[in-house]
Amino acid sequence: MSHVLSAGRRALTDTGEARGTLIDGIDVRTRIVVAVAFAIVMVSLQDLAVLTTGLLAAFFLMLSARLPVARTLKRMAMMDSFIIFLIAMLPFTVPGDAMFTVFGFPASWQGLRQAAEIALTANAVILALMALVGSTEPVTLGHALRRLMVPEKLIYLLMFTVRYVDVLQQEYQRLRMAMKARGFRPSNNRHTYRSVGYLVGMMLVRAIERSERILGAMKCRGFTGRMPLFDTLAFTYRDAVFATGVTVFLACLIGAQAIR
């Protein structure tokens, strides 16, 4: 066990993201509100040039938050894999001028346009979210959401997930190791499916039992349904400057959309 104790594990509040960046100095609440506003504006835009400007702005945010570019874009691509079917199907399902046909199904220019709109919007929003909200410490995010009047139950859910996801991960790894030690090698057969099913089932049962033990331990320390959350959030002039800048930019986007 000594390696666990002495390896200098990251603190729970440490996201490993860069410090002292432009984004880092801005209050988390401002960042959340700005990210939500940005998302709403992006969804309401239709012009491809304006949308591209929004995407570029999101790129700029990513760079100024000093997120690792390759890893962030990989995450963005993972999100894209969820909508790839929608985007691939749209040209075939939207009626309009035929571009080409596949097995007798026409692909329309209008559909392609809509697909491009969705792809630009989704990627811009996810990039902005990762740059603004994803770079915060999970615990700080919880504090900020609390101050933004998000229901406490949801915040506790977030906090407990942050705290215990690692514990579950370790439990999973230990069980997998023990299975391996008894000669288990996954392949495509019933034995494998059954065993993996048992593994998942056992993790669920243990998670429920663990949660009951944790609740018991919390009750023993006087828990009555509320957790004290201490935070040091404060608005500064930087928040005002940042919020104003973003508002002006978003207004420009809306204006450009209106003109076209």
Binding site: R174, L175, M177, A178, M179, A181, R182, G183, F184, R185, H191, S195, Y198, L199, G201, M202, R206
Partner: peptide, 24 residues
Amino acid sequence: FQDPDDQLFCPTVAEDIAFGPLNL
């Protein structure tokens, strides 16, 4: 294993004991 809970993952004792022989 040191912690029996790391090792037992099947619902019943019989199934857990059968797991190894099935792997063989």
